[in-house]
Write a protein that binds this DNA or RNA. Structure first.
Lengths: 166, 166
DNA sequence: TAAACAACCTAACGTTCGTTAGCAAGTAAT
DNA sequence: ATTACTTGCTAACGAACGTTAGGTTGTTTA
């Protein structure tokens, strides 16, 4: 709190004119980011597109949110564990719902014959882990732009490392 | 420290008969795990195998270490940031060296025509992110065994989601 | 058998933590 | 013009933190 106050140029105690507690900050960051992720993914939702196309768009949306808010994303991805009840439970429910977006796409892709996957849930976890690692190395001033990152990720996750003989 | 002492059934102050400081525990865990990872990957090293085979073995070795030490792995993957100098710098150097193992395999695979990759460093990061996410959901009593996890990960990372038309 | 050491204890240290109480000044609403 | 609200302040609270000092007891080592 004293560090935060210092960064704001005010006294630690003054923070409490704006928030009720330290945990409230955590809650706000976590649930605002959840909103951002849902907003982004819902904006690119398109029932008529192929599973491949849907997945590409979802990945792109996710990467955009992640790179636009690197610090809040780090909190969202790592610090939600420290949420107190009932927020902890609520957060996990939201995360599940978000994962289900991806799961639906995978399911659709399997049904349409586009995808071939060892395990559905496992596939989603691996995809999201690849996406969620970005915040640890992404730098806005780096040479790889968000759109390019999304493209590369889509390529790797869809086609893998193996040389494509098409 | 008091929590740790409680778990050990002794007083907090008694811990200091065994260690110099709290940070020493962090250092020991981090560098012991680094040893484990290096040991595992060096044990499966085989210059004569194909890049595909080498990558599969490296992934398997990594997953084995990760699942055999879930809690220490969490520390190794997340808490190294809190290492003080010079250990912080030393740790990063080790991590770089470890990533280079994978990078070499990718390079080899590109040279041999086995792999096709948008960006070499990016590929390694995505692979390792997929591996290092495991500790957040893996349960020894779960139905997916380490060997199976490694196999699924290899399949996903090598071939991607797309249906293989071989 | 004496000395050294290991592993624990109790008591307490100084610091940092999140937070509250109470007050002052500026701004907005009635 | 009075009231109420906002945003900041100083001072301080109790709790928790990592750690040290100094002592006791049992086990090794010389």
């Amino acid at each position: 709190m004293r560090d935060l106050a210092n960064a704001l140029g005010i006294e630690a105690a003054s923070i409490y004119s704006h928030i009720r507690s330290k945990e409230e900050i955590l809650q706000r960051v976590c649930f605002r980011m959840a909103d951002e992720f849902f907003g982004a993914i819902e904006a690119v939702k398109d029932e008529n597109a192929s599973a491949t196309e849907q997945l590409k768009r979802a990945i792109s949306a996710h990467v955009q949110v992640l790179t636009r808010n690197t610090e809040a994303s780090a909190v969202f991805l790592q610090e939600w564990r420290h949420l107190s009840e009932p927020h902890h439970t609520e957060f996990l429910a939201l995360r599940d719902r978000y994962e289900n977006y991806f799961r639906e796409i995978i399911r659709l892709g399997i049904a349409s014959g586009e995808f071939q996957v060892p395990d559905e849930k496992f596939a989603v976890l691996t995809i999201l882990s690849g996406l969620n690692w970005i915040h640890t190395w992404y730098k806005p001033e780096g040479k790889m732009k968000p759109a390019e990152i999304a493209e590369n990720l889509s390529a790797m996750l869809l086609s893998g490392l193996k040389k494509n003989l098409n």
